[in-house]
């Protein structure tokens, strides 16, 4: 019978076992680091909200021109984000852009006299929706899920503005 211990070959633990263990731990950390990077990208960079279905309500608004408005553009009231654009589609009958807004339930008391405008942050910045709460009076109800905002102001198109400016300047100089 050969005595295994004296040969220094032990079955389970020992140098080799330690090395395998170390490799396993490092590989585990590697996989976790990859997962962490994924989660950071999804939740911190792309800012995906885990939407609980009842935390939002939907509003619709028609515009003459949506300009550079995009899906996920913010809806702001006095600079505070209260919702985001969910979809931009063309009404198939009236051929007007219809914007679907996903509003935060937290801000649910806007009267139906409120108005919506497409604004630009800075001269060349991103466009967003500015919501201006209307007056509250008897016979004025609050906006609910599925309602439409009628009072809308389309995007200012810079080229049109410059065109108008030039036109008015040239007509004055005459």
């Amino acid at each position: 019978m050969i005595n295994l211990d004296t040969l220094g070959i032990d079955s389970e633990s020992g140098n080799k076992g330690m090395l395998t263990r170390k490799i396993e731990i490092l590989v585990g950390l590697f996989l976790l680091a990859g997962l962490a990077a994924f989660l950071v990208l999804v939740f911190n960079v792309a800012n995906v909200q885990v939407s609980r279905g009842d935390s939002t309500y939907t509003l619709y608004a028609k515009f003459g021109n949506v300009g550079g408005l995009k899906v996920r553009s913010p809806v702001k009231v006095g600079g505070v984000v209260v919702g985001r654009v969910k979809a931009i589609k063309l009404d198939p009958v009236k051929l007007e852009p219809v914007v679907t807004l996903l509003m935060d339930k937290q801000y649910s008391s806007f009267p139906d006299t409120s108005s919506l405008a497409i604004l630009t942050s800075g001269l060349l910045g991103e466009q967003f929706l500015g919501l201006k709460p209307g007056f509250v009076d008897d016979g004025v109800s609050m906006l609910k899920n599925g309602d439409s905002i009628d009072d809308t102001q389309s995007a200012l198109i810079l080229e049109d503005l410059i065109g108008q400016l030039l036109y008015s300047m040239s007509s004055k100089s005459k």
Binding site: L41, N44, V45, V48, R72, S73, E126
Partner: peptide, 15 residues
Amino acid sequence: FWSILQASVEWRSDI
């Protein structure tokens, strides 16, 4: 920095 970044990164199309 973060809010503008978050507004423009779309997880389905980008990530």
